[in-house]
Design a protein around this nucleic acid. Sequence first.
DNA 1: GATTCCCTTTACGTAAACGTAAACTAAGGG
DNA 2: CCCTTAGTTTACGTTTACGTAAAGGGAATC
Lengths: 127, 127
Amino acid sequence: MPETTFTISELAREFDITPRTIRFYEDEGLLNPARKGMQRVYSKKDRVHLKLIVRGKRLGFSLAESKALIEMYDPSSQNTDQLQALLDAIDLSSERLAQQLADIQIMKDELANAKKRCQKAMRDNKK
Amino acid sequence: MPETTFTISELAREFDITPRTIRFYEDEGLLNPARKGMQRVYSKKDRVHLKLIVRGKRLGFSLAESKALIEMYDPSSQNTDQLQALLDAIDLSSERLAQQLADIQIMKDELANAKKRCQKAMRDNKK
DNA sequence: GATTCCCTTTACGTAAACGTAAACTAAGGG
DNA sequence: CCCTTAGTTTACGTTTACGTAAAGGGAATC
């Protein structure tokens, strides 16, 4: 059976962040680990949420945005208005990702050009 | 002949930021507009740089990173060591973009799933 | 039983990226 | 000549996302 719970430092190591950071995410309402006495005990679900936060950070998402993403995970037990708001939020996030995809394509092209110019400059330097 | 220079408020409108923000980028060394008396006069090149900054922001780049990207634009007049450092920086940025590309793909899938669950929950609510 | 870890809370500090307000200048219109 | 409309500098304020002590609890190990 694979490990089913995690300590704070295990997760910190895995995601290359500090325990302080993980506790901060909890303060901000993005995580809700169980407790065994005083100590936090993280479930697989908590780990999934943390993974989402870290991935969001790489894409420039604020913690508030990542929090919204986490809340998209369990749409049950919501009334119709909330569900509609969720759908709208999902569409908004999708648009943002599409924009980022386009931005990345442009940047990749520009970096490729920069690389060529750079290599040319190096050749010119040699002579 | 298309417009060849721009005022600060023109650029602010175009990129949906404030003049304060543009001046701040100048303070940080990311822009170097000409002056006509006291007023800043932005060239097409300045505009390209600003566009790069704004795109970088959408991808979560810090201003320091965007500054580095701008400096990749003109690799001439650099010695060999600097050029090698530039090439390394370009490769690093490319890796980062590749990671972001993968992150976006995962997020898109997850959002699609969330959307399905959400729509299902709405159907269940109706009944 | 003292040391060593790993965990905890509380709280002040900090860097980045601007926002906001004050006080001023310079150009153009009525 | 006054007013309005950009633009300018200077400077302090604010939010986000943590960093960094300080002070301590609890279990294991020497």
